[in-house]
């Protein structure tokens, strides 16, 4: 029986996921709950990296788990639940993003604009720097800094090696640094 300890901090292994998936398929609902608790924070981070909206990201993560539940019997490698559910999450979030883009954005007359301040705040610039990242790199940044996850845990979610995670993270930060520098916020100017 797999330990029921909850929380995303617990180290995840393919073998445990394998067991939990198999138990869930045998009407052990709590095993699925355990999988949900394990991966929910990562799913929110991944969805947020696409939607750039934390509340929508939570909705996307919840829907992702529902879709995963519906599709669980089709998962061929139960030990790869993490990468599989993350892939579902990307699709769900992209669908939500497309839906949001189809609707005209409501006007918010009270929203501050760049012109109001004359110069962009560092946080705004950093947000733009993140936006201009390719999704594949932005996802790694969000996973790393959302909950402070280790490379090993990120690798479990993404189905990649810690080395490749490290490489992606370096490239992402290089791009961010370049963007900031081009916009007058080099290393020395950011508080």
């Amino acid at each position: 029986m797999v330990d029921r300890q909850s929380g995303s901090e617990r180290y995840m292994t393919n073998a445990e996921d394998d067991i939990l998936v198999r138990q869930a398929l045998q009407a052990d609902a709590e095993s699925f709950g355990q999988l949900c608790r394990r991966y929910y924070p990562a799913l929110v981070a991944v969805a947020d990296s696409i939607l750039l909206d934390h509340h929508l990201a939570e909705d996307a993560a919840q829907e992702t788990l529902a879709e995963a539940c519906r599709q669980l019997a089709r998962l061929k490698e139960p030990g790869r639940f993490g990468p599989w559910v993350t892939a579902i999450c990307r699709n769900v979030a992209k669908d939500m993003l497309r839906e949001r883009l189809r609707r005209p954005a409501p006007l918010d007359p009270g929203a501050p604009t760049t012109a109001d301040h004359g110069e962009e705040e560092p946080s705004e610039l950093l947000a733009k720097a993140l936006q201009q990242l390719p999704q594949r790199l932005r996802e790694v940044v969000f996973l790393r800094f959302y909950n402070g996850w280790s490379y090993e845990k990120m690798a479990q979610v993404l189905g990649a090696t810690p080395g490749s995670i490290d490489g992606r993270l370096r490239r992402a930060k290089k791009r961010i640094a370049g963007y900031l520098a081009r916009n007058g916020f080099g290393k020395g100017r950011i508080p």
Partner: peptide
Amino acid sequence: DNSWLDSLLSRQIHRAPA
């Protein structure tokens, strides 16, 4: 490694664990 960005990114992105 552009590690000087880490604290910035953490401030920008970090959320309490969901």
